[in-house]
Design a protein around this nucleic acid. Structure first.
Lengths: 215, 215
DNA sequence: ATAAGTCGTTCACTTAAGTTAAGAAATGAT
DNA sequence: ATCATTTCTTAACTTAAGTGAACGACTTAT
């Protein structure tokens, strides 16, 4: 994995109001939705040097590999996929302000999937040892992590239920509603497998929908 | 919801070694896998009167209803289903030693699904207020709950990935491996919708598999 | 700049799931 | 015990997804 460490203030983007924001601003804005941090706590976070810039296509985790790293997307998009019978099966896309803890972190077994960058990304990468130290020092972080994982659990259950109860076409229309950005920024064949179908079927399905909308 | 409260020691089953076990034995055996309880702690748990006997077909939670109840299955099987376009869509079965916290408990919104008993059940029903009191009094419980929800999160992610990356036939074969009891104890039309297909398709699929295995 | 590879779409054909209907088997209610 | 209802299976037909191949558009590497 080739990951470039970046200074806290280097990377920046313009937000909805054309205000220039550094990645650390973005991070603290996000955190403030859950807990309020003192300057000391903010500095403690920054001193960990968690910010990383990662090039499109970089593989963050290989099948068979073990890791203790957690990934939090500040900018860009990362993707989880399996290779089953020689075929890529994408099961998740993580975009801005979403975090990913690989199974193998909790289960302490080699990963059975890959994680790679769909786009150039700016990520927070923290390993579990590190975060448990921080968490015990700053109970606030621990509280936040627990909130996040509760949120995640519910969200995942709902996503799973939606997937199970929908046809591929409904899943696509649902995605169009809920994550329209994905359809633009992600290659179609990855989207197709995320919807549980082949690229050809996705093409056809889209043509079908377009045809219907004409009437 | 008609739920019969039962004494701690009344209900019993015979285990694999033909030993008679009360529901409280079963509960404490389960808990001991995570934390070890003192007699005081065990008595505190029992004093809460959590054990309930529930008849097959009982609806534990209705769509549109709010609840603070958690359900833990000591014996029997409960099922989560949606009604979408007038059709039942089953998304989960919970069997022995598995717990269920409805979405609406965490999200504080009316439920968008039903929960009902597939069989006569013996359940632990605890409400969130109660358990948070117990948890703050006995940190051990809190620790156990956190372990359980971590376990659940990983398990769910894996289940979701398996579902996404499999065809209905593979899903059925997978279920046959992992939860063979379900295929016996659950009505076929509920199983079908759990697999994401219609009952007719499940019948056909089973016939197809049988046909293949003859060769 | 060119060649090789990747990606998205289209087409013809195959396979599997959805739909509608009918009948047998099991279950529940009176 | 009988009747009504629900459940499961089978069948014929429809619709949608899988497969294999071809083509143009776009990248990537050299």
């Amino acid at each position: 994995m080739e990951v470039v460490h970046i200074g806290r203030l280097v990377a920046s983007v313009t937000d909805d109001n054309n205000k220039i924001k550094t990645m650390q601003d973005i991070l603290f804005d996000f955190i403030s939705k859950y807990v309020s941090l003192t300057e000391d706590e903010k500095n403690a976070l920054l001193s960990l040097d968690l910010f990383h810039s990662v090039k499109k296509g970089t593989i963050l985790l290989n099948e068979g590999q073990k890791t203790q790293d957690n990934f939090f997307v500040l900018k860009g998009c990362i993707r989880v996929y399996y290779i089953i019978d020689g075929e890529e099966k994408t099961t998740a896309f993580y975009t801005e302000m979403v975090g990913l803890t690989p199974h193998c972190v909790r289960k302490k077994v080699p990963s059975d999937y890959f994680i790679s960058c769909v786009e150039d990304c700016i990520l927070l990468i923290s390993n579990t040892d590190m975060s448990s130290k921080v968490n015990s020092k700053f109970p606030k972080f621990d509280a936040m992590c627990r909130m996040l994982s509760e949120e995640l659990l519910v969200k995942q259950q709902i996503d799973f239920d939606e997937f199970k109860t929908s046809s591929p076409e409904k899943r696509y229309l649902n995605l169009l509603q809920k994550r329209p950005d994905l359809i633009q920024r992600v290659p179609q064949h990855q989207l197709a497998s995320y919807l549980g179908i082949k690229p050809q079927s996705l093409s056809r399905l889209r043509a079908r929908i377009l045809e219907k909308s004409k009437d």
